[in-house]
Design a protein around this nucleic acid. Structure first.
Length: 272
DNA sequence: CTGAGCTCCTGGGAGC
DNA sequence: TGCTCCCAGGAGCTCA
């Protein structure tokens, strides 16, 4: 579910209450997310939060005793609880702050991660973060750099976008959208892309992600921000989920195919 | 090394 | 109403 914009919206939401606050303790209701929950969380107390960061689709909460690494998986969600809201199904973890505000982690499909890295273990060197590509808004990522990285792969361009090895944060929905905007077929071999196409693609990735962040993320089934508000970007999707509907650019019929086991929407006529 | 396919898990919706 | 099947936005792992 959550792609980079949703994670960014979530990060901004929790940072407001977490930075310079103290996490008094944790309540763990589930032991098995994608990885087991560390026993440390049962005994960790009084963590002073210094920063909340985002790298790709991961959220890193830095404290005076170590870092918490969170991934929302396909259905994960963090919400800020300010009253005695009852516990719902799939509410797996609570971070209880000194102010008694609770940051609650809910994840229906349990593909999410909630990991502890004590001081001395660099979370950025973990297997989750070490091989990631460029952040989309990193100035070092130029069309030329992107072009050179794409040349190294033989797979289709959409697979490479989803891999997070060239540029991170583009998930299945936005991959269809940015390729449509760039008039690039999702089936194009990565190493056949031109520099000009990379230029267009990169600027569209930035435009779409920025726009989605400003709209509070995309709600298709169940995303909402930390206050329970749904994102509005879904209203702006051009091709995702629009199989057999008219292409908004050329009025041909949009196609659905499966790439890497994921639904992919595109226009045969105007994406080459 | 590379790419394709599998896998973790739950639940909604379609079809019968 | 209830059953079965298919599908879903991530991403690491295994195998050929």
């Amino acid at each position: 579910m959550p792609e980079l914009p949703e994670v960014e919206v979530t990060k901004l939401g929790i940072a407001e209450v977490l930075v310079n606050s103290v996490i008094k303790s944790f309540v763990i209701r589930t032991n098995n997310l994608r990885e087991p929950i560390s026993n440390d969380f049962y005994t960790l107390k009084d963590l002073l939060v210094s920063t909340v960061e985002r790298r790709a689709k991961y959220i890193i909460i830095r404290t005076n005793k170590g870092a918490i690494l969170i991934h929302l998986g396909m259905s994960g969600h963090l919400s800020i609880i300010r009253d005695n809201t009852s516990i719902n199904k799939h509410d797996h973890i609570d971070m209880i702050l000194n102010s008694n505000v609770i940051i609650r982690f809910n994840d229906q499909r349990r593909f999410g991660l909630f990991l502890w890295y004590p001081l001395g273990e660099n979370v950025y060197n973990s297997k989750w973060l070490i091989n990631l590509g460029y952040e989309p808004f990193d100035e070092l990522l130029t069309p030329l750099v992107m072009y050179q990285l794409f040349l190294k792969h033989k797979k289709c361009i959409k697979s490479v976008l989803l891999e997070n090895k060239v540029v991170v944060g583009v998930g299945n929905i936005y991959a269809s959208e940015v390729l449509f905007l760039s008039k690039i077929s999702p089936l194009l071999d990565s190493n056949k892309i031109t520099l000009q196409q990379c230029d267009t693609l990169l600027s569209n990735i930035r435009k779409v992600l920025r726009c989605a962040i400003n709209n509070g993320g995309t709600t298709i089934r169940d995303f909402s921000d930390t206050n329970g508000n749904h994102g509005h970007y879904v209203d702006q999707l051009l091709v995702y989920g629009k199989n057999q509907q008219q292409c908004p650019r050329c009025a041909c019929i949009l196609q659905k195919t499966v790439i890497c086991g994921r639904a992919t929407y595109f226009c045969l006529n105007c994406q080459k």
